[in-house]
Simulated scan of single mutants.
Amino acid sequence: MTIPVRPGAGRPDTGRAGAARRDPLGPLLDLPGVRDAADAARAGIDRLLTHRVLRRESAGVSSESALRGARASAALEGVDVPLADLRAGQVGDPVVQGALRSSLALGSMVDTWSRAPGQVLARLHVLAAADLTDRAALGRPGPHAAPRLGGLSALVAGGTEVPAVVLAALVHGELAALAPFGVADGIVARAAGRLTGIARGLDPKAVSVPEVGFVELGREAYAAALAGYATGAPEGVAAWLVHCCRATELGAREGLAICESLLRG
């Protein structure tokens, strides 16, 4: 998909506000099902953010969310491990460890993401692929990726005001389809998508688990939706955006489950 870019300063997620005709991504909201799916995802996150546990235990919920998100992201790569083993530090698989490092580091990248997205993507790749490729290749996207990464970075830096869940889906889809690094691109793409939702105000406390939503929808459905997005056809892009919104909605439910488990002690 070719991303048109215009200069301009973005604002945190404001739902439908700002999706004007001038916005390069505004037309995405008019694709079949996208606006309703984005609204449902936003409503799901809003329900999660009002849970009373978050008034005193948001850090604990966020930590557990990061752990579950890392496990789910690795599962989407074909490495599925028990959550209890991961929590106990008994999993040494390099894919899982890369997903865990990336997930746990997102909080430190929120402020930098909109200012220097390329720098953050390089750092995410270093974390995700540290045990999977040569050291010299870490954080270095291939030359084929430069034009699309440039367009994506401009959008992340403020070139659009579409709802955060839509931008997060676009970031995720672009990186996964483009595979700029050649190794651990899926881990990086999901981490960057999640980071977009955090930084743009969709889930500022980082307590939802969208990666779990993707697992619940199924690996085959995830791969099919991503393949549709990669074609650039409007119906494929729409299906991917709706898929991501649905995963975000399910990820909010996973966050609620974490809150309830902490409430029960």
Rank of each mutant, 00 (worst) to 15 (best):
P4N: 09
R6Q: 03
G8L: 01
R11T: 02
P12L: 02
P12T: 06
R21T: 01
R21M: 00
L25Y: 04
L29Q: 12
L29E: 11
L31R: 14
D36M: 04
A38F: 08
A38S: 15
I45E: 07
L49Y: 01
R52D: 12
V53S: 10
L54H: 12
S58E: 13
E64M: 05
A66N: 08
G69K: 06
A72Q: 12
A75F: 01
E77C: 13
G78C: 10
V79D: 07
D80M: 04
V81P: 02
D85E: 15
L86V: 11
G89Q: 10
L100F: 06
G107L: 05
A116L: 08
P117I: 09
P117E: 13
V120H: 09
V126C: 09
V126M: 09
L127V: 09
A129W: 03
D131Y: 08
L138P: 11
G139R: 14
P147W: 10
P147L: 12
G158I: 01
P163Y: 01
A164E: 10
A164M: 05
V166D: 08
L167M: 11
A169Q: 03
G173T: 03
E174V: 13
L178F: 01
L178W: 00
P180T: 08
F181K: 05
G186F: 01
R194L: 04
L195D: 07
T196K: 02
I198S: 00
D203L: 03
P204E: 04
S208W: 01
V209E: 10
P210G: 07
F214T: 05
E216M: 12
Y222W: 03
T231S: 12
A239G: 02
W240A: 07
H243W: 01
E254H: 06
E254S: 04
L263T: 02
R264T: 04
R264P: 00
